[in-house]
C-alpha cells in the first residue's frame, strides 16, 4: 500500500470519527438517520469491504 493510500484511509477514519461524534451529539432522529447513512460507505471502506 502506498503512502497516499494510507493517508486516504487515515482521512476516512478521521471523517468517520467526526460523523460518529456528531451522531452522538445530535438530538433529531432525522439527523441521526442522515449521519448513519453518510457513515455507512466510510465504514465499508475502512473495513475494506467496499
Amino acid at each position: 500500500m502506498s503512502v497516499v493510500t494510507l493517508l486516504y484511509y487515515a482521512l476516512v477514519a478521521f471523517i468517520s470519527a467526526l460523523l460518529v461524534v456528531n451522531l452522538l451529539k445530535s438530538r433529531k432522529w432525522e439527523r441521526d438517520v442522515l449521519y448513519v447513512l453518510v457513515l455507512l460507505p466510510f465504514l465499508l471502506r475502512l473495513l475494506r469491504l467496499k
Binding site: L23, L24, D32, V36, L37, L40, L44, L49, K50
Partner: peptide, 26 residues
C-alpha cells in the same frame, strides 16, 4: 427517549452495514 432513538437508528445502521458488508465480502 434520546437513548432509545440512538439505539434504534444505530442498530438499523449496523444491520445495514452487516448485510451489505457480508454481501460485498461474499
Amino acid at each position: 427517549r434520546l437513548l432509545a432513538q440512538k439505539f434504534v437508528v444505530i442498530s438499523l445502521g449496523i444491520a445495514l452495514l452487516a448485510t451489505s458488508g457480508a454481501s460485498f465480502y461474499k
